[in-house]
Amino acid sequence: MPWLIGLAVLAVPIVEIYVIIQVGQAIGGWPTVGLLILESFLGAWLVKREGRRAWNALQTSLQSGKLPGRELTDSALILIGGTLLLVPGFITDLFGVFFILPFTRPLARRGLTRFVNRRVTNLTPAAGFGPFVPRTDEPRPRQGDVIQGEVIQGEVVDPEKK
């Protein structure tokens, strides 16, 4: 996973520059800059509007006493989408708008939920390594001492004391 993030950090700017150059060659330099500025303003307005809706839904959920799972996921998606809209470029703006729009957000929410569930089910508690470490197929070592013995009428008999 860390190598994938590193690859994205390197590849996304290169792809964005390539797309901006291609759009600039198709419609001209100033119209491309104007389109990028227009996308930024539209994205800021959209983040403000959907962020306010998500905040109100979260407050309503908390006041009614129910767990705000969907509301928190929507808030996270709006935060991610807003961050993507801050990055200049057409591809990141496309993904940002996908995460923010109310009619495409359920698709992104399902994908995010699947991703998180897959990551959580692949984790298991282990002492000494923080709360979770990746699950392995190796058997877990037993904790404590193992005492050999027999049970007779509810009592444990130590075979060494016979």
Rank of each mutant, 00 (worst) to 15 (best):
F98R: 04
G82T: 03
G96R: 11
P106E: 13
D93P: 01
L112D: 00
R119F: 05
N122P: 00
T104W: 02
T121S: 15
L107P: 03
I100S: 13
G82W: 09
G82K: 06
P88H: 07
L85V: 02
G111M: 11
F115A: 14
R114D: 02
F103R: 12
A108F: 10
N117C: 03
L107I: 14
F95G: 09
G89Q: 09
T92K: 09
V87R: 00
P102D: 10
G82Y: 05
G111Y: 07
V97E: 04
G96L: 10
I100R: 13
T104S: 13
F115D: 01
T104Y: 01
R105G: 05
G111R: 10
V120T: 10
R109D: 06
R118K: 08
R118P: 00
L101I: 15
L101E: 06
F103N: 11
L107T: 12
L86F: 10
N117R: 12
R109G: 05
I91W: 15
R109V: 00
L101W: 13
D93I: 01
T83A: 14
V120A: 11
L101D: 13
G89L: 07
I91K: 04
F90G: 00
L86T: 09
I91C: 08
F115I: 06
G96V: 02
F99C: 15
D93M: 03
F90Y: 10
R110L: 11
P88R: 08
V116Q: 02
L84W: 04
R114G: 08
R118T: 09
L94Q: 06
F90Q: 03
R118Y: 10
G96S: 04
V97K: 02
F103S: 10
F99D: 00
G89W: 13
F90P: 02
L85C: 12
V116S: 03
F90A: 00
F90M: 05
L107H: 12
L112W: 12
T113R: 06
I100F: 15
V120R: 15
F95D: 09
F115H: 08
R105P: 04
I91T: 12
G82P: 08
P106S: 13
G96P: 02
R114Q: 11
N117H: 07
T83Q: 03
R119D: 00
P106T: 09
T113G: 02
V116K: 02
P88W: 11
A108V: 09
L101K: 15
R119S: 01
V116A: 06
L84Y: 06
R114M: 08
T83K: 01
A108C: 10
P102V: 07
F115Y: 14
T83I: 15
N122M: 10
F103Q: 14
G96A: 09
V120C: 05
G82D: 03
T83F: 14
N117F: 10
I100D: 14
R119K: 02
G82N: 03
P88G: 06
V116E: 01
N122V: 01
L84P: 02
L86Q: 10
L85Q: 12
L94V: 11
L101N: 07
P106G: 14
R118L: 07
V87L: 15
